[in-house]
């Protein structure tokens, strides 16, 4: 198999799937949200979201005009030959998807304000690498919207406050965000490690399907508690009031320095787009988040 070409083609597919069709767990959560929401304004917003995603899927059009910043998560088998070609394949796929899907050009030079026009540039798309035993490659794409990115928060909390401090930080962050991140949102929350590590884990936690509880029962309980708490804020869908502000809270952690308690909250909007595929050593591909007809 031509690894570069296979990865490029699969990644273009993943980008198209991600921006035009939500994964099943997110769709289901939005349907449930409509069902449980009691505020009229909130229900109207959720109905509009459901109509919008159905229409996007049917017409294979991006569900939101902001197709985000492209982030990749790659798990590569240690025995795969030609891993040095993966980066180029991902960049080329991003360029192609920008014209083929199309994606909105969202890569701007911070200093001269020039838009590169093709969603690529220095360090973007960003690639997170993980090496595992074996000879397959798993690719996940996370097109990350700007509105929900703008309210992500990082706090170096007091170790003495511990989990209490974390709870307060999460609640305050959601309240401060209000309608800005296009609620209902998914929250990725992580503590420990260090400032960068906590945020990385928080963002990666956004990838966990909403119907998959945390493997750690204690954290699963904390996720439920946090979800209940943030949904009592009353912000509601699109900030118009209601009981569904957040669809799910996904926690992760790293052990921490005795003197630090880094905490990070990453937001995804209702357009919680992600798509994954596994490429096997024989070149065959399985799509993990979407049904490919």
């Amino acid at each position: 198999m031509n690894l570069k070409k296979t990865i490029e083609d699969v990644t273009v597919n993943l980008l198209r799937l991600a921006v035009t069709e939500l994964p099943k767990d997110v769709k289901e959560a939005l349907k449930q949200a409509y069902h449980h929401e009691t505020s009229q304004a909130g229900k109207t917003q959720l109905q509009a979201i459901l109509d919008n995603i159905e229409l996007a899927e049917k017409t294979s059009t991006p569900m939101c005009q902001d197709t985000g910043t492209i982030i990749f998560y790659i798990t590569a088998g240690a025995d795969v030959k030609g891993l040095d070609k993966v980066e180029k394949a991902l960049y080329d796929a991003t360029r192609r998807a920008t014209t083929e899907v199309p994606l909105r050009p969202n890569a701007v030079d911070p200093f001269n304000r020039k838009n590169t026009g093709d969603n690529t540039g220095r360090n973007i798309p960003y690639i997170n690498w993980e090496i595992k035993p074996g000879n397959g490659i798993e690719i996940t794409v996370l097109p990350k919207g700007g509105g929900s990115e703008n309210v992500c928060a990082m706090g170096m909390l007091s170790p003495g406050e511990g989990i209490r401090g974390l709870k307060k930080f999460v609640i305050d962050t959601v309240v401060k965000a209000g309608s800005k991140p296009c609620p209902p949102n998914i929250l990725g929350v992580a503590v420990g490690g260090g400032a960068d590590i906590a945020m990385k884990l928080a963002k990666k936690a956004l990838l966990r399907p909403l119907d998959k509880p945390n493997v750690n029962p204690e954290l699963a309980k904390l996720e439920e508690d946090l979800l209940e708490a943030v949904n009592q804020t009353g912000i509601g869908p699109m900030g118009l009031g209601g009981k569904i502000t957040v669809l799910g809270v996904n926690l992760d952690y790293a052990v921490r320095h005795p003197a630090s308690f880094p905490a990070a909250v990453a937001f995804n909007c209702w357009a919680a787009r992600r798509a994954s595929a596994r490429i096997n050593s024989d070149g065959s591909t399985e799509y993990l988040t979407h049904e490919v007809r």
Binding site: Q45, A48, I49, D51, N52, L55, A56, T59, T61, P62, M63, C64, Q65, D66, G145, G147, S179, C182, M238, L240, C269, W270, A271
Partner: peptide, 9 residues
């Protein structure tokens, strides 16, 4: 208020 992000609609 129009639903944020609902570009297709």
């Amino acid at each position: 208020a129009f639903t944020g992000g609902a570009a297709v609609l």
